[in-house]
Nucleic acid binder design. Structure first.
Length: 579
DNA sequence: TTAGGGTTAG
């Protein structure tokens, strides 16, 4: 290496590969270029790209008095490669070295704060942005919108956005995505409409977020419109967009269409495959889920990861495929060297428990306990569900009490305990639990159901009387239930909370939000399947009622609950009552 | 004598 440019060439040739970089570095030192600031800067960014963060630090420390260029380079690289702690620490060092940050510095640092959801640090950086005079930089502002969104502070995110004098497509995207990620799907869709009205052309990032928002609320008409738009405008169906579409169709009840999108995708990755596997799983098609997983392995598809295994295992759990599930769990560790996390353990307990292997499920938890892993309440919640399902009340009560100690604020555990006491014929204990809930002001989560009819969404809550056609809906529901009773339907009263009197109990059951939504859907449409989205799990009584309603109305009823799908047709449900 | 940013899926 006789010249500086030859040395530079050598570094570039080494690329983001640690060994090669170290060799070049050694060579630089030997040939007298070891102190060149420019060469070291290039070396540092490449070391960071190689994810050799310790070596990056070492190189950085070897440079006396780093200049603004070096600081910006290392801050940008660490931020981009997701070393947020390093990024923030270089930023602090920059400040203490009296080197002035620029708008470029801030975008990177803010992104790292967003990655960490580090609200306090980010607010400090935001202040610094303002006093440094970069408060109106479009890039910095877009980064701030994302930052506040990722910290869950949508008010602040909106405030930054609203104050932007010049909004960019990316800034709009940041807001739409932020709202969607924070569960504010309706608002995300409204902002999307405002974006278009303001003359901004949505791009693929916009659509990915909009599709996710549609998937959340079940807004299939807007979702399908987006798909049409993508096809008509010849937009590239990239992996993220394709995956968002698979998720949309799956969560709106149309697995076939989800598969159609999957087959159309030119490029797929592990996320796309996982989305498709998960689609089969949540609809109860366990075999298809496992088959697709096998195909992924056989056809040299992408390497499955932890999320994929959650999808496969939960598919097995919901379809009663215990043997397959055990095999998959084994392969996860033995063939792929993945370490099962709490979510995988929960799938296993759920799978074994649902299938009636209560003892094995219990042993599974205790085995984890022995290795110090069983503190997760979710494991006991799954076990508790199995106890209730298989009427093992003694164990159920023991577990529910344990859960209440672990999570006293969770009303679900109290409700479960009270339900199990009621089922096992212990009314005194029921009132005791109920009183405790009242005393501690614990209320059951409010359930609601959404249905889309003619491109419009309607939300129902229990005993809802806010709709224009309330009278008609209730009358129609009464008629339906009468006809159901004629062919054998009997209300399942244990499903409601045991804090209402017997007479009220049937009233509450009769006007559950999902029943109102189904009645409304049947009333307003002809000859088509209706799809209802519920925020909680469907209750046992509604589940039974919908089987009968599918007969008397001669319609398919699809219900998406918190966990999975139920397709009711000709008197039975796709979950085979296994849920 | 070395570069360049903010948004998106399971």
């Amino acid at each position: 290496m006789t010249t500086n440019s030859a040395a530079y060439e050598a570094i570039v040739r080494a690329g983001p590969r640690l060994n090669q970089l170290q060799q070049v570095h050694a060579h630089l030192i030997l040939t007298g270029y070891g102190r060149s600031r420019s060469l070291l800067t290039k070396l540092i960014t490449l070391a960071c790209s190689a994810r050799a963060i310790a070596y990056t630090r070492l190189l950085f420390l070897s440079v006396p008095f780093p200049d603004d260029f070096l600081f910006n380079s290392v801050i940008k690289s660490t931020s981009k490669l997701r070393f947020p702690f390093d990024c923030i620490s270089y930023y602090r060092r920059m400040l203490s070295s009296n080197v002035s940050p620029t708008n470029y510095t801030f975008t990177s640092v803010i992104k790292s704060c967003a990655d960490l959801s580090a609200l306090r640090i980010g607010i400090g950086v935001h202040c610094h942005v303002v006093v440094s005079g970069f408060g109106l930089d479009t890039y910095v502002q877009a980064a701030l919108v994302t930052f506040y969104s990722k910290c869950g502070d949508m008010r602040a995110a909106r405030q930054v956005f609203d104050r932007m004098p010049e909004k960019s497509v990316v800034a709009w995207n940041s807001l739409v995505s932020g709202l969607e990620q924070n569960g504010l799907a309706e608002e995300a869709i409204q902002v999307f409409y405002r974006m278009r009205d303001s003359g901004f052309e949505p791009d693929s990032a916009t659509f990915v977020s909009v599709l996710s928002a549609c998937a959340q609320t079940g807004a299939i008409s807007l979702g399908s419109w987006v798909y049409q738009y993508i096809v008509c405008e010849g937009l590239d169906l990239n992996v993220k967009l394709g995956t968002a579409l698979i998720n949309l169709y799956s969560r709106c009840g149309d697995v076939g269409k989800a598969r159609e999108v999957f087959d159309k995708m030119k490029e797929t990755n592990v996320a796309a495959w996982t989305a498709m596997i998960s689609a089969y799983g949540t609809h109860g098609y366990g075999k298809q889920a496992v088959d697709l997983f096998d195909k992924m392995e056989d056809d040299y598809g992408p390497i499955p990861n932890n999320v994929t295994f959650v999808a496969v295992l939960s598919a097995c759990a919901h379809a009663g495929l215990v043997e397959e599930g055990r095999m998959v769990y084994k392969r996860m560790t033995e063939s792929y060297g993945l370490i099962p996390g709490v979510e995988h353990h929960v799938c296993m307990v759920d799978m074994l428990g649902r299938a009636g292997f209560l003892e094995e499920a219990y042993r599974f938890i205790h085995q984890l306990d022995a290795t110090g892993k069983a503190t997760a309440p979710a494991l006991w919640t799954a076990m508790l569900g199995a106890c209730k399902m298989h009427r093992n009340y003694d164990l159920g009560i023991e577990i529910a009490e344990r859960l209440i100690v672990l999570e006293p604020e969770n009303p679900g555990h109290h409700v479960m305990l009270s339900n199990i006491y009621a089922l096992s014929g212990k009314p005194d204990e029921v009132s005791h639990v109920r009183d405790g809930m009242m005393r501690n002001n614990l209320r059951k989560q409010v359930g609601y159901s959404i249905i889309e009819v003619k491109n419009k969404t309607y939300l129902f809550s229990m005993g809802d009387e806010s709709h224009q056609e309330t009278g008609e809906i209730y009358w129609y529901l009464e008629t339906l239930m009468r006809r159901c009773k004629e062919i054998g339907y009997a209300p399942v009263s244990e499903a409601v909370m045991h804090q209402v009197e017997e007479e009220e109990k049937e009233y509450a059951l009769r006007y559950h939000s999902e029943k109102l939504a189904v009645a409304f859907g049947l009333l307003k449409t002809v000859d088509v399947a209706i799809t209802v989205v519920k925020n909680l799990r469907i209750c046992e009584d509604c589940h039974s009622a919908f089987k009968y309603i599918s007969v008397v109305s001669n319609r398919q009823i699809i219900v998406r609950d918190k966990l999975r799908f139920h397709h009711f047709q000709n008197g039975s449900c796709s979950c085979m009552d296994y849920w």
